[in-house]
Design a protein around this nucleic acid. Structure first.
Lengths: 225, 225
DNA sequence: CCCTATTAATTAGGATTCCTAACTTTATGA
DNA sequence: TCATAAAGTTAGGAATCCTAATTAATAGGG
């Protein structure tokens, strides 16, 4: 994968080569020179910028409401997902952190009176998170944190968005298959999904799925095993 | 923007309404019910998942090489951008953190012998970051942190990627215009960019730019003022 | 039925991130 | 010249996030 570094890049990268091998560098999506020749690198770089946007927007909202980013993420997740998924273990997988990290954040949310622990499940080691009244109130105020982005997306025409979504949803499913994203709830990985003669079909809704019918976070999702 | 909550969502969301107003909630991109009817919400949700991917991949690499995520980001940025941009103030804007946060990370990178401070600039308050030999060596090892994503993107066909990139690049520029992303180096915001009769043109390279010629991080970028 | 292995969550301890506020030094500009 | 702004640091503190070890409960053989 190594390739010779063009002269102008050596200047840009402040590379002062100390031997011949230094002229060969590995391909990186964050090397602008790479981006010039490889569309996948360009897109990777762009998606990294979008990732910065989420970081920024989440922090901005966090400061306004007096919570931390992970606390907001937990609150929003609990508000919109079935109880079965609202436990420490699942949240750790969902947000790619360890259980102690979730445990800490939950402790604070609990202390602030925003969530309750519900031990009524069959497994006595585990509990389910539930929003309190003030928790629900707060969630309603933070659910729009990504709206500056969503609004800009909304300005584009339907056909363009539909194509974009198709690529994005397939990408997310492939990230799951290769183990990068440990959880997801897309149609492609659901046991109710069926591909009949090149067409996507949901056996639960009993209907054919168009590109934009595909869900990334279906409430009825169940893992295929 | 409020709308009535469908009955099945009340179950899913564990909403135990305590008064009439509770039946009306604000639209949120993180509400799966919203995602069913609004493509912009679906895409926003999807991009948030991609954002998690970057977080995961960066942390995974960080553990392997014994650096922190922000330290890796700084190292990669310095490796591939002109000295002019490699100072504390710019890095803070680039990665959406405060100057003390960058200052801390730089102190550690410096202590580890990975970067040097170059005070030779005209402004004596400021300095420029430069990679040391071992810094460059390390950067070569971390530049591929996003490759699990880049590889999956690379499997798609050129035409699909080209369309995806067009939407993505316009989105990034609009994020900059609306002040969400404070820095970017896309053609659209560059002083060498010209739009002649519906066609993109670079006055520096003196050539017409096709969709995928548009750069997100051009080394020659200069702000239009 | 017991016993081991696994799983859920927590605690403890520590490095780092990240903030705000205050400060030093240098540059800018009226 | 002098006020203002800007670059970076320091100080202090909350939160993130990790690993490793712990407690308690469940699950699966034999």
């Amino acid at each position: 994968m190594g390739y010779p570094i063009p002269a102008h890049l050596i200047r840009i990268a402040n590379l002062v080569p100390f031997n011949e091998r230094d002229f060969v560098m590995k391909s990186s999506a964050f090397n602008p020179n790479m981006q010039e020749e490889d569309l996948a690198s360009k897109i990777t770089f762009g998606l990294e910028r979008i990732s910065e946007v989420f970081k920024t927007l989440l922090w901005a909202k966090a400061k306004v409401v007096g919570l931390s980013p992970i606390q907001i993420q937990i609150g929003l997740f609990v508000a919109y997902h079935r109880a079965e998924l609202c436990n420490v273990s699942h949240l750790a997988k969902e947000f790619n952190v360890t259980k102690p990290t979730i445990s800490d954040a939950v402790k604070i949310l609990n202390k602030k009176g925003l969530i309750d622990k519900d031990y009524s499940a069959s497994d006595q080691r585990s509990y389910t998170l539930q929003l309190t009244d003030s928790g629900r109130k707060l969630v309603r105020e933070v659910g729009d944190f990504a709206d500056p982005l969503r609004d800009l997306i909304g300005h584009k025409d339907e056909a363009e968005l539909s194509r974009f979504f198709t690529t994005l949803s397939e990408l997310i499913y492939s990230l799951n298959r290769t183990g990068v994203l440990t959880v997801q709830r897309t149609c492609f990985g659901c046991k109710f999904y069926d591909k009949e003669s090149e067409e996507d079909y949901c056996k639960l809704l009993q209907k054919k799925l168009s590109n934009s019918d595909i869900r990334l976070d279906c409430p009825e999702f169940e893992n295929r095993n």
